[in-house]
């Protein structure tokens, strides 16, 4: 049952949307409070946006999930750089950096009806999430981070063990939408 998430070919494809697994990324949970400036300088990322806002620089993407919580995505090589860039700050600016690269898989949902496809599992108003933002939310009972890259491209980060369940629904939904005549 774990096989689908390891596949490299599209997991589902129709006129409505295409579902595939994203290439592996390094991910880290960054927790801190107080002065953001030293961290922004060390990472080269803006951290001070409102909750759900994103910033990126080079390979790095930062997403503010909570008042003291950020999700960092980058390349596996760059994570070591990030770790050593933040370590010297610890004494004066205590924080927590935890490698969670192995925790989640990322699914890419792309296509003209990608946003509509998400409504089968997500109670949030997908259209209310701005392009280029992201939100932590629930998809069919699984906690996810939903990245809205554009009106027709989304990414979902989901914990490994929930991925088959989530993909199962996305595959059903991709077929269901394509079967609609209107």
């Amino acid at each position: 049952m774990n096989a689908p998430i390891l596949a490299e070919v599209p997991l589902a494809h129709s006129a409505a949307a295409t579902i595939r697994r994203a290439a592996p990324r390094a991910r880290a949970s960054l927790r801190l409070r107080g002065d953001l400036a030293p961290f922004e300088a060390a990472l080269g990322l803006t951290l001070s946006g409102r909750l759900g806002s994103r910033a990126d620089a080079g390979p790095r993407e930062g997403l503010r999930l909570g008042p003291d919580e950020w999700m960092l995505h980058t390349t596996p090589d760059d994570l070591a750089t990030v770790t050593s860039a933040l370590a010297p700050l610890y004494a004066d600016h205590p924080h927590s950096l935890v490698d969670v690269s192995g925790r989640e898989v990322t699914v890419v949902i792309e296509g003209p009806r990608a946003a509509e496809l998400l409504t089968i599992g997500c109670a949030r108003d997908i259209d209310a999430i701005p392009d280029g933002a992201a939100r932590r939310t629930v998809f069919d009972g699984a906690a996810v981070i939903l990245w809205r890259d554009s009106a027709t491209r989304f990414r979902i980060d989901v914990w490994n063990s929930f991925a088959p369940h989530l993909l199962d629904l996305l595959v059903i939904g991709t077929r269901e939408l394509a079967a609609e005549t209107s």
């Binding site: 949970s29 927790r31 003291d68 927590s96 969670v100 925790r103 989640e104 490994n160």
Partner: peptide, 9 residues
């Protein structure tokens, strides 16, 4: 102090 779920890490 901060808490991070690593169950699935």
């Amino acid at each position: 102090v901060w808490l991070t779920s690593t169950t699935e890490q």
